[in-house]
Design a protein around this nucleic acid. Structure first.
Length: 990
RNA sequence: GCGAGGGUAGCCAAGCCUGGAAACGGCGGCGGACUUAAGAUCCGCUCCCGUAGGGGUCCAGGGGUUCAAAUCCCCUCCCUCGCACCA
């Protein structure tokens, strides 16, 4: 029978669907195992990069089923938030990129595009036509009865319960939060909505509130009312800085001479800021009203008072000031900022210009840098040193940016604050900046303002700014909650183990998390319908929802009030009048929970997977806390990241049509461990397909062996409750040494595969079962006479076992072949157990000797380029064997062994020969453990080589003679025999 | 910068936790068998030297521990990912 995966896979899919094979219901007997994977987000189709995420848990699910567990593996669909809405909007606008993705990448038929113009229509299309069909094609053993979307009424009731509960427990808090805000659409926007600046980060500027006395009529002030400069300075010039601790080093300020500025009432104060800053401040929840338009020239030459030191400094003109960034007024710290240092030098050198703005050049000349911290290797005035060492003379120098970055870096980590910083003196910037800032913010000397690190532009073309918005936070910074999360983590198996640190770190690092958005699909915030709970926040405990999802469908959504879920999750005592239906469902929830394994992506460690731990810790009892998390690496396509927008993807349907689902699965599971990145390469997938096909045809040959009678015995034997035919000796023909060798290897393979599967090491497991074992078979086919009944029985037994081991990986092929072989699919059988009867270290040692003597002869043939007619093998003499025993007993100390050996007068006579031998044997013993040595000691070498004579003769097409080194009749023309060493016979070719 | 993970032969990649064989596999390459031929399949070889199973040099670079280091420790260089309100 030829290997036709498409046909045979279709057959099995139908069988599984008809029988409802993977629908899991509690039956009370078997051990329940509950495996989940993040529900897919159908904002586009599924591609091959998604496939492994779902295949790995499927393999584990199938493995546990063979182990006798009852396994629940469900799936649902995450549609919360804006991505789907965004995709629909782009489609409706007819954006070319979006149309191309839909038409060309995901093959959406032209007449179907219309159905995609509503968010749920869009989601439904991809759910049905891509995810669901793809998952079924892949043969995922999902219980399809339990699917739902996060936009369903009943799911929303569940989320409502969750958030009501968290609010009652004080874990939600209202506050202000910076968001990206499109000034055209007057709406918050997500990263998906951006044209430019996707990388932009929020930057929190400190505003140092210098006091001034400025209005539009320069100099008019003193003329009009005759007052002097001693008037109370009631205008604030907020200087924006990222290094608030440098405030004591300010020598002057800068404004742009041609910039547009305003004097405005900000909250209750009067501020001088750039015109561009007005709208920004307004978005950041400031009450702001413009009193007067000014120009930079109005500011320049004025003095301002440092709120910390009380020093008066002058505002100088500088064209490098960006009025579009922050407040448009900056303070100058020439001792620590290379830019400021150079600007000051340039100002000093340009008397003409200073006079133009009414500044006395002598005042400028008097300005000297004021150092505020010490840093090793940078002298008294670090900026000066940095600039001079780099040979920079002008602020246009391209190296200036690097020099500045280096100095800032060094000062941040190593800069020690001067004594006049009082309580902050003597510490590094790194350790004082936050505290220093908070201190003066409390005192009212500092304020704050957000800016982006780069320009951000919305897809609509509008300018995006930072806005502060009312929001609700999840209080992940709550110490008690963090403690619980750590406890949850302590009980979790993390795969791979080295991710544990990352979770721990994330738990500590998480701060308040804004959990709502202004728009999007999903559940409305129960007490404020204007907001919707965002996707990472509505997906923290939904695994519990799976346990009852299909049964909730029978209950009207309006009955699913918080009391219902309290009764479901906390039991009948939790509410006054528990709903009977909830209590019934509670049994199933109790049956499946906790989640045994959550199989997720490494990119979710920082958020989802840690949220998952926080919420389980808070909402459920310790007995319901998750047991394990595995994370998965990314998929590459031909060495590059996949991208649906670039069309650089392979669709599962296409791959499956071309190679078959088993090949796709096997490649995904075998090319790397789940947590490692893998690379989908067409040529490698093709060769995987070839390997499976080869396996198939070899299996067919074994199935075709004419040993009918034995099969009957087998079945009969099973009828009599013999657990395994393999140990029913009456049912099997005589076995030779090589057969036992292969069977021993088989047991080792079972052990290795089982251990690997328990740790989700799909690569190690499938390598052992498939590729490594093929190597053994290769040797076996060389070594064994396959016409013997014993060999055929062995190959059958090997196939039967391997098919069961392979069933989780390539379920279609393995079930088909197993059924052909035994009459029942592999999935109806058990995961194999190693049979102690066939595990035999001595048998393996013996075979190892044959392999190494074969290799050695090959080596000699190759090196000499000869084609021997006669091969002579000399086994080491008994006395050498005695020395080996002595080494075993005495240990690997050469001196001690020699002492022992030399007591024997016969050996003493042999002199150097003994010495060399001891050296060799000490080495040999040192490299092996006791069991191995014991097995070696049991081997009768002479018999091993004599047994292998026929094999060696056919291998080398020569006569093979085996002698004992000490045999006086041994033929030894070149005197090779005495170089024999135990386990390393001497060889002579002729 | 902070946190995590890496650097192994032409390429991909195992081994590292638990030190002990020039280092599993695969791809590619070379040679051979089968075949009318191609493909598939099978068997060798694929760091350097070698007409006797040997020798030499190797696992980013440099030190160290050890009888013994790809593996343990220290330092340096390089790469990837995350650093949030985005699913």
């Amino acid at each position: 029978m030829d290997y036709e995966p498409q046909k045979l896979e279709a057959r099995w899919r139908d069988r599984w669907a008809e029988a409802g094979r993977y629908e899991a219901d509690p039956d009370g007997e078997a051990e329940p195992t509950f495996i989940t994977v993040p529900y897919p987000y159908p904002s586009g189709g599924m591609h091959i990069g998604h496939c492994r995420t779902y295949t790995v848990p499927d393999v584990y699910a199938r493995y546990r089923r063979l182990q006798g567990d009852e396994v629940l593996f469900p799936i649902a669909w995450h549609v919360t938030g804006t991505p789907i809405i965004g995709a629909v909007e782009r489609l409706k606008k007819g954006e070319e990129d979006q149309l191309s993705v839909l038409r060309d990448t995901y093959n959406v038929p032209e007449d179907t595009l219309e159905d995609l113009e509503t968010p749920m229509g869009f989601a439904r299309y991809f759910i049905e036509n891509h995810y669901k069909s793809g998952m079924k094609q892949l043969g995922l053993s999902i219980d399809w009865r339990r699917e739902f979307t996060t936009n369903d009424d009943r799911y929303s009731k569940f989320i409502t319960w969750q958030y009501e509960t968290l609010k009652e427990r004080g874990l939600l808090e209202k506050g202000l939060h910076p968001v990206k805000f499109c000034t055209d659409e007057e709406n918050p926007v997500t990263t998906h909505d951006l044209l430019e600046g996707e990388e932009a980060e929020f930057q929190e500027y400190t505003l140092v509130k210098f006091e001034a006395d400025i209005d539009g009529e320069r100099g008019a002030r003193s003329a009009s009312d005759g007052s002097s400069g001693d008037e109370p300075r009631d205008v604030i010039a907020p200087m924006a800085t990222l290094r608030p601790e440098t405030v004591r080093g300010v020598t002057n300020a800068y404004a742009h001479p041609d910039g547009e500025y305003v004097r405005a009432t900000v909250d209750d104060e009067t501020w001088i800021v750039s015109s561009a800053a007005v709208e920004k401040l307004r978005l950041q929840e400031r009450e702001i009203e413009i009193d007067e338009e000014l120009t930079g020239a109005d500011l320049i030459g004025e003095t301002v008072t440092n709120p910390i030191t009380g020093d008066e400094v002058v505002i100088l003109p500088a064209t490098f000031v960006d009025t579009d960034n922050a407040t448009g007024v900056v303070m100058s710290v020439p001792a620590h900022s290379p830019d400021d240092y150079l600007a000051l030098q340039e100002a000093k050198a340009d008397d003409e210009r200073m006079r133009e703005y009414g500044i006395d050049p002598a005042d400028v000349a008097d300005i000297e840098p004021i150092p505020i911290l010490d840093i090793e290797g940078y002298g008294d005035v670090p900026a000066k040193t940095a600039v001079e060492d780099a040979g920079i003379e002008s602020s246009d120098d391209p190296d200036l940016e690097d020099v500045t970055a280096d100095l800032y870096q060094a000062e941040f980590h190593q800069g020690i604050m001067h004594d006049d910083y009082g309580e902050f003196a003597g510490m590094t910037v790194e350790n004082v900046r936050e505290e220093f800032r908070a201190h003066y913010q409390d005192e009212g000397a500092f304020d704050e303002m957000y800016e982006f690190t780069e320009d951000v532009v919305c897809r609509c073309g509008g300018d995006v700014e930072v806005a502060k918005q009312d929001t609700w936070f999840l209080r992940y910074n709550d110490a008690e909650w963090k403690r619980k999360a750590h406890q949850v983590l302590d009980g979790i198996d993390t795969i791979p183990e080295n991710t544990r640190d990352q979770y721990d770190h994330t738990i500590d690092w998480l701060n308040e998390w804004p959990c709502i958005r202004n728009y999007g699909l999903g559940t409305r915030l129960p007490w404020d319908e204007d907001f919707v709970i965002e996707p990472l926040s509505d997906s923290t405990i939904y695994m519990s929802y799976y346990t009852v999802a299909h049964r909730l469908d029978e209950i009207p959504p309006e009955d699913l009030d918080p009391d219902f879920f309290d009764a479901l999750f906390y039991g009948e005592d939790a509410v006054d009048d528990p709903d009977e239906r909830a209590l019934e469902l509670r049994e199933e929830w109790n049956h499946w929970y906790p989640v045994d394994w959550r199989c997720s992506g490494n990119d979710l460690i920082n958020n989802h997977l840690t949220f998952f731990q926080f919420h389980h810790g808070e909402l459920f009892d310790e007995s319901e806390w998750p047991q394990g998390i595995t994370i998965m690496g990314m998929g590459l396509l031909e060495g590059e990241a996949m991208s649906s927008s670039k069309g650089h993807v392979v669709l599962p349907s296409k791959a499956i049509d071309e190679y078959g689902a088993d090949t796709v699965r096997f490649f995904l599971l075998n090319s790397a461990e789940p947590w490692q990145d893998y690379d989908w390469r067409d040529d490698l997938v093709g060769s995987t397909r070839d390997q499976l096909e080869r396996f198939w045809s070899r299996a067919q040959a074994v199935i075709d062996y004419d040993i009918e009678e034995m099969v009957e015995i087998t079945l009969e034997a099973e009828g009599e409750e013999t657990t395994d035919v393999a140990i029913d000796e009456d049912a099997r023909p005589d076995l030779e040494h090589v057969d036992r060798w292969l069977l021993s290897k088989l047991q080792g393979t079972i052990r290795e595969a089982t251990e690997a599967m328990d740790g989700f090491e799909t690569r190690t497991a499938s390598q052992a079962i498939f590729y490594s074992f093929e190597e053994h078979l290769k040797w076996y086919r060389r070594r064994a006479d396959l016409d013997r009944e014993g060999a055929q029985w062995t190959l059958r037994e090997v196939l039967r076992t391997r098919l069961r081991l392979l069933a989780p990986f390539v379920p279609f092929m393995a079930n088909e072949l197993h059924e052909e072989l035994t009459g029942e699919p592999a999935e109806d059988a058990d995961w194999p157990e190693p049979a102690p009867e066939f595990e035999d270290e001595t048998v393996e040692r013996r075979e190892r000797l044959v392999e190494s003597v074969t290799d050695d002869i090959h080596d000699i043939v190759d090196v000499t380029g000869t084609d021997p007619d006669t091969v002579r093998v000399y086994v080491a003499a008994d006395w050498k064997r005695d020395v080996f025993e002595t080494v075993r007993e005495t240990g690997t100390d050469v001196g001690a062994v020699m002492g022992q050996v030399m007591e024997d007068p016969e050996l003493r006579e042999k002199g150097d020969a003994v010495n060399d031998l001891v050296q060799d044997l000490v080495e040999l013993v040192r490299e092996r453990d006791d069991d191995e040595l014991a097995a070696m000691a049991d081997v009768d070498e002479q018999a091993v080589y004599a047994d292998a004579e026929a094999f060696l003769e056919s291998e080398f097409d020569a006569t093979v003679e085996v002698y004992d080194e000490s045999d006086p009749d041994a033929v030894d023309p070149d005197g090779k025999a005495d170089s024999a060493v135990p386990f390393r016979p001497a060889i002579h070719l002729e």
